[in-house]
């Protein structure tokens, strides 16, 4: 059963990946990405990472993908990737390098990972991950929260429209006591 599930998710994930990379419309790429994310969520479940699987769906599929869609909509992007001279990176080179890369990585992966350990029923549960997060990894946890705050502030700061040149600052409130 597990093997079937894995085979299916693997095929779907690869298809989605190709979709991301090869689609002409950005929206199609987003859909491909979504496919990959969901397949991987299932794989996480197969590997006993329940909490992570749920997080994957919520954060990645639920927030990040939505964000991508919003931006595509906002920018009204057309992928008119016409030819460009001179070529910055010949596509052939890119494909070749990636193929070599894939080969090497798979070779590395295939060299075995050893016997799988046996795990208890509570492996990867919210309780277990939560316990680890709040004890052993408490400091990175706090740091992560700061990262998120910085991200928010950064996004807000970056999105402000700059004032037009020469516009006088708004001084309506001044002079009042």
């Amino acid at each position: 059963m597990e093997r079937v599930l894995f085979a299916v998710t693997a095929v779907l994930a690869l298809a989605g990946g190709v979709g991301v990379v090869a689609s002409r419309e950005p929206v199609h790429s987003v859909l491909g990405l979504l496919l990959v994310l969901m397949s991987l969520a299932v794989d996480f479940l197969l590997l006993g990472a329940q909490f992570i699987a749920v997080l994957q769906v919520i954060i990645y599929a639920g927030a990040i993908v939505v964000l991508f869609v919003f931006i595509i909509m906002l920018l009204n992007v057309r992928t008119g990737e016409g030819a460009r001279t001179p070529r910055v990176v010949p596509p052939a080179l890119g494909i070749a390098l990636s193929a070599v890369f894939a080969g090497l990585l798979v070779a590395a992966a295939a060299s075995g990972a050893g016997q799988a350990a046996s795990v208890g029923a509570d492996f990867g549960t919210v309780q277990q991950v939560g316990r680890a997060l709040f004890t052993a990894y408490a400091l990175p946890f706090e740091a992560a929260s700061i990262v998120l705050i910085v991200g928010m502030i950064g996004a807000v700061a970056l999105s402000k429209r700059p004032a037009p040149w020469g516009a006088p600052p708004d001084r309506r409130g001044e002079g009042r006591r």
Binding site: L97, V100, F101, L104, L105, A107, A108, S111
Partner: peptide
Amino acid sequence: GVLVILAYWV
């Protein structure tokens, strides 16, 4: 660069 290192490693 990564490929070089990886090749060596593998």
